[in-house]
């Protein structure tokens, strides 16, 4: 009786570590396929389109609104202290350090990550991957590696675009609607936002998040149970696991970078 929950725990634990191990092996195989892509940049470009360009719209719109909300909320808080001129600092720091990398990684998981998982999972379910192997084409190199590289490249670009659009969203609300001085907005921002402390760290974050998000996405697809149900479960897992991994890693990275 008492052994049943223990046994269940053991089984779950073994399953978890099994997946973790497979995930790392998979990553090694994927990375091994990356150098050969230099000879075939076309494969990566095609994936940059579906991973990056198609995610751009949601990034632009979300970035704009997040920036505008930051502008409004920041203004309401700062105006009590008579410090509304610092709005630019608040908006830019929030975006560059945190919201840019994190929110764009979450949106990336929802838009591009789930699509990658579904695509690879369906290719597995319809025997396309198996078929490729039989045609002596390694799906790790032909299918997985280009998607991995495209995701890894796209993420920092998307995060930067998100941040910039957000800053202009905040500018629009703060300067355009609420009447903060245009010069103060930018000069305070430029005085307080540091290139290496804030911008570089934000970019490093988005590289890490991109790596993790696209790794989870392609692995879940490749590891999916090859049925419609299996693929839909894998797609859900991609979004959930990426969100957890990104938020958890964000805490760790923030503590390392800004924790002093």
């Amino acid at each position: 009786m008492i052994l049943d929950p223990l046994q269940l725990l053991g089984r779950k634990g073994l399953g978890f570590f099994g997946r973790l191990g497979r995930g790392h092996l998979f990553l090694m195989q994927t990375l091994a396929g990356v150098p050969a892509l230099v000879l075939r940049p076309g494969l990566v470009i095609k994936q940059l389109y579906s991973v990056g360009v198609l995610t751009l719209l949601i990034i632009l719109v979300s970035g704009l609104f997040v920036g505008m909300v930051l502008g409004l909320q920041g203004y309401n808080t700062l105006v009590d202290f008579g410090a509304e001129e610092s709005l630019g600092v608040v908006v830019a720091l929030s975006l560059v350090r945190e919201l840019g990398p994190v929110v764009s990684a979450l949106l990336f998981a929802g838009r591009a990550g789930s699509a990658l998982t579904a695509e690879i999972g369906l290719m597995k379910a319809t025997e396309q991957l198996s078929g490729m192997e039989m045609m002596a084409v390694d799906p790790m190199r032909r299918i997985v590696a280009p998607r991995f590289v495209a995701g890894f490249i796209s993420m920092p670009l998307l995060a930067a675009i998100f941040s910039i659009v957000g800053v202009y969203g905040g500018y629009f609300v703060g300067v355009g609607l609420l009447g903060i001085d245009d010069g103060a907005f930018w000069s305070q921002m430029q005085a307080k936002v540091d290139l290496s402390d804030d911008v570089y760290n934000g970019v490093i974050k988005s590289f890490v998040f991109g790596f993790v998000a696209v790794w989870i996405a392609v692995f879940e697809g490749y590891d999916a149970v090859p049925t419609s149900e299996g693929v839909s479960r894998a797609t859900t897992r991609t979004v959930v696991h990426t969100a957890l991994a990104v938020l958890g890693l964000d805490f760790v990275l923030t503590a390392l970078m800004f924790g002093d």
């Binding site: 319809t126 025997e127 078929g131 039989m134």
Partner: peptide, 26 residues
């Protein structure tokens, strides 16, 4: 494997390529 052709049960055609590109693939 390059000297062995295989036809899968469902065809296993690459869904993002047209018929021409599928045959041209190998």
């Amino acid at each position: 494997r390059q000297r062995i052709g295989m036809m899968f049960q469902t065809g296993a055609l690459l869904t993002d390529l047209d018929v021409y590109a599928n045959v041209a693939f190998p």
